[in-house]
Design a protein around this nucleic acid. Structure first.
Lengths: 260, 260
DNA sequence: CGTTGCGTTGAATAAGGTCAAATAGAGTGG
DNA sequence: CCACTCTATTTGACCTTATTCAACGCAACG
């Protein structure tokens, strides 16, 4: 039944078929349209009017599954497409020289990655799945051409990149100005928000990443992250048990954060 | 004499005149074309073929002077235009809640700011001149419309935003993973590169910002910056005397930096 | 010629990092 | 299903680094 849908969409996007997706084994490749997507309001078409989305027949993309531990792409690979996540949980990172790596973001459903590759035609980051998921593969050349015909689509892409710039600016202020407790608190609250926006509980969720990955993201060592979490727990702000987290007092958590 | 040029360009850009620039007092407003600009290869039209640049009559913008200490725009102002610097030296920053402010970047000639305003139609940052300068005022709506007609221009804007995303990612890895000496070393080398690209000496230049601003940018306190600079000087890597800086051994400086 | 802002330097302190050990799960192969 | 291994996590003791507090010098400016 999924296949019938696939075929239907396929017919409408001959150009998408031109872009071969690099997959380990030949999986059944699926296509889907933004107008049908439950993430419509969150993802690429945010803020576009439904007519606009529908109007654009070209907004149909191939999908690709990414399993836990699998990479979507790696640093240095040629940039051909960017990606919108449909499901799953991911990590983007750069690897440092001494084998250490630095986490840049934890994207999830509705988020878009890869646009940093435009400048040099090369992917800057690595993207790995922390949890099985699926992405829409969006061929940049295709999208770019389409954007010339559909102003709202061009605008949309700009907003997307603008959003990414802002997001990184915010993270920079966090890394530059705040200290350990504030960083971790801000991190938990940001995660909580992301889940809430996607319809999940804001107060109770599973961390999909290790303490080390959190630390790498926040510019802290894993031990520090662990200690801060323990301290928050002692103070009744949260309950952590390995990966499962409950936020008891978001207000007090926010108070730990100077700004933001 | 500048005025004649102004008039000539004016004729070619009736649309530019529609965009009123918010200035304290009515200065003589000047216009100029990318095709004539010495920063052609560095700024917005990077990588565009000369024919493309010339072809686009619309690539003519009003200019605005910004004097030392004056703001180009402030957080919260409505986003109408973005800006390309022609000369001068600037600082972008956000102000924190307790009166403290965090530096985000030190843009100079050829750099572009303001694109982070697209997402929310509001400027996120403050931009202040550390040294007298001049900017091209680029009305976003105008540019966007033009980009629909000129594919290379659309591509150019994408590259610009992509570059900004990458720049911030790099700064994040610096803030997240490196320690004081490495941060300062990386900062000096990056500045050196920027000057070199613009045709100035890579080994000898004036810092236009205070120690505090450097610290704010690097996530350090001003005293730490001062100490690190002194230490570099003791070791013969540099000579600093207030704002004037000489790099004696860029290689050893680079060695202080783990990655990058 | 005092005032003000910037820069340097020192001493004390606090924050986070490093090293190390113990424990708990998750995954693997028998 | 169990034993074994590997990785993740927590916690403690100690150490390094950067911040804080404070004093002072210097230059620019009214």
């Amino acid at each position: 039944m999924e296949q019938t849908a696939t075929l239907r969409y396929r017919e409408r996007t001959p150009s998408a078929a031109l872009h071969s997706v690099r997959t380990a084994r030949s999986e059944p490749r699926i296509s889907s349209a933004c107008s049908d997507c439950p993430l419509r309001t969150l993802c690429l078409p945010t803020g576009m009017r439904m007519e606009e989305v529908l109007e654009v027949d070209g907004l149909v993309f191939t999908r690709r599954r990414v399993r836990r531990g699998e990479h979507l792409y790696r640093t240095g690979e040629v940039f051909k497409s960017f990606y919108a996540f449909r499901s799953g949980f991911f990590k983007t990172y750069v690897d440092g020289p001494d084998g250490d790596s630095q986490t840049i973001a934890f994207p999830m459903a509705g988020d878009v990655v890869g646009l940093d590759g435009i400048e040099t035609d090369t992917h800057r980051l690595n993207v790995v799945a922390l949890d099985d998921g699926e992405v829409c593969v969006i061929p940049y050349a295709h999208f770019e051409a389409l954007a010339l015909r559909v102003p709202s689509l061009q605008r949309q892409l700009h907003k997307l990149m603008s959003r990414e710039i802002v997001r990184e600016q915010e993270l920079m202020t966090l890394l530059g100005g705040m200290r350990a407790e504030a960083r971790v608190a801000a991190f938990l609250l940001a995660l909580s928000d992301k889940f809430a926006i996607r319809g999940y509980s804001a107060s109770q969720f599973r961390l999909r990443m290790t303490r080390e990955e959190i630390g790498s993201y926040l510019g802290l060592k894993l031990e520090t992250v662990s200690r801060v979490l323990s301290r928050f727990q002692e103070n009744g702000l949260i309950t952590v048990e390995l990966r499962s987290l409950v936020i008891h007092d978001a207000k007090k958590l926010a108070a730990v954060t100077p700004d933001l």
